[in-house]
Simulated assay, not measured.
Amino acid sequence: MSNKTVIDVDNPEWTDADFGRAKPTSQLPSDIATFFPKTRGRQKTPTKVALSIRLSPEVVEHYKATGPGWQARIDEVLKKAAGLDQA
């Protein structure tokens, strides 16, 4: 096996100048922007704290099976259990 680096001339590595010229998808022509997935973007005012938590596989499977928004539903249940749902 060779340690030789393969350079893809059709897809070169970006330089600092390339990143400097880059534009957000919102500024691209619509026919080009359609090739980029829609993303939610950064929250204007974060309302929740990002953290890592370990849950049993059964709990995760149960909530994931309920579809999109499953993490928010876990948050609602935890609020009730903590007595914080009377806001």
Rank of each mutant, 00 (worst) to 15 (best):
A17S: 12
K79M: 05
I74A: 01
A22Q: 12
Q43T: 13
V9L: 14
V49C: 08
Q43H: 13
V77I: 08
A33D: 08
T39K: 15
W14K: 05
S52A: 12
F35R: 10
V59C: 07
L84M: 11
G69E: 02
K38H: 13
N3R: 15
P29Y: 01
W70P: 02
E76G: 05
R73D: 02
H62L: 06
S52G: 12
K23M: 15
K48R: 09
G20S: 14
F35D: 12
L78K: 03
T5E: 10
S52H: 13
P12A: 03
T66A: 05
V77M: 06
R40G: 11
K44H: 13
P57S: 10
I74M: 00
G20I: 08
P29M: 02
T15R: 01
T34G: 07
N11M: 10
V60D: 01
G83P: 02
T34H: 12
E13N: 07
R40S: 13
P29R: 04
D31M: 01
N3P: 03
F35M: 08
P12R: 01
T39L: 13
T5I: 11
E58G: 04
A50E: 11
H62S: 02
P29Q: 01
I7W: 10
K80G: 03
D85S: 12
P57W: 01
I7S: 07
W14P: 03
G67N: 00
W70S: 04
R42H: 08
Q71Y: 04
K64E: 11
P12F: 01
A33W: 03
E13Y: 07
R21S: 13
K79V: 03
K79W: 02
L28P: 01
L55M: 15
K4M: 14
P12G: 00
D10W: 10
S56L: 12
N3Q: 15
L28M: 12
R40I: 10
L28E: 07
F35I: 02
K48H: 09
T66N: 06
N11P: 00
F19P: 04
K4P: 00
H62Y: 15
D85V: 04
Q71D: 10
P29T: 03
Y63R: 04
S56F: 08
K79A: 08
A65Y: 04
P24W: 02
E13A: 13
W14F: 14
K80R: 15
